[in-house]
Design a protein around this nucleic acid. Sequence first.
DNA 1: GCTAAAATCATCCTAAAGTATGACGATAAC
DNA 2: GTTATCGTCATACTTTAGGATGATTTTAGC
Lengths: 163, 163
Amino acid sequence: MTSSFFSKHKQVILYGISMAMLLFLLKWLELRYIIINHSLEIYIGAIAFIFTGLGIWLALKLAKPKTNTVIIEKEIIVEKEILITPNTEFTFNEVEFNKLEISKRELEVLQLMSKGLSNQEIADQLFVSLNTIKTHSSNLFVKLDVKRRTQAVEKAKRLNIIM
Amino acid sequence: MTSSFFSKHKQVILYGISMAMLLFLLKWLELRYIIINHSLEIYIGAIAFIFTGLGIWLALKLAKPKTNTVIIEKEIIVEKEILITPNTEFTFNEVEFNKLEISKRELEVLQLMSKGLSNQEIADQLFVSLNTIKTHSSNLFVKLDVKRRTQAVEKAKRLNIIM
DNA sequence: GCTAAAATCATCCTAAAGTATGACGATAAC
DNA sequence: GTTATCGTCATACTTTAGGATGATTTTAGC
């Protein structure tokens, strides 16, 4: 307890002792030489200078260092394996469907595509023009990140978006 | 508030107290010995006190703050999704395969077709010309009794000829 | 060695698929 | 009321797929 108090306030105690010693020294010097014959200004100036220095020293010693917290964001890429349930019984993967932002109409086109229908046949079945189906299919390829209808069907089946 | 002020400036307060005690000590010594001029001692003590404070203030205000840079590495886990198709219980329908009289090479073409490859890509993979693949695919369509590659894939999967 | 099926490749042509872009009305969200 | 999305349709163009036909070369069986 006593030792911990000393170690904790070592600076203060040392400063106190050193100041006491300095004052003694000054007293001694005052008596012996300076004060009697010399100007008071020098003495006071010396006091001011010394104690300013002491104050600075004390402040620097006791000042708590500021903590600069730098947060470095480190990306760790973890490969997450997604097992796709074998479609013995088809369960529509709504999560993946929504993630791909495929519209209802596009899904219809995709389903008919998977049955092997041509664009013209799909157009006839949905009572729209061939060009409309071409637009839908093009959009589908972009959303599914594929180049051909065969790939689109393959991926969509793999993702359980279609049967 | 008061307690936090005390804890924050404990060092300074302790220093003040210790200095006051020292001054008392000096007063006592002064009485014991030579000192005559009381006002001068008080004056010098005040000077010492004030300039110590000035030193502390100077140090705290003007000195560069000590900075401890704490680097915290924050790990962000980025999940990279890998789609895995599990091995479904595929049993090759050899009976149907033989009935349709599809050749080995044609089956290869059919399998690559089902993966969504174009005729050119299939040709490159099998190290044959595009025309060869066209011939194979044409023959396949006749044998499978379909009109398009998408239908061929659909039917072949349905007949368990391909996965 | 002959034969038949399989595999290869070609040419010419048509059909279908796919790309790019713009437009327009409806509908829902802000 | 403006913005955004969706669904629709169009034009113009390029690429790919597919059909018809014929030819050559391998390969395997008799």
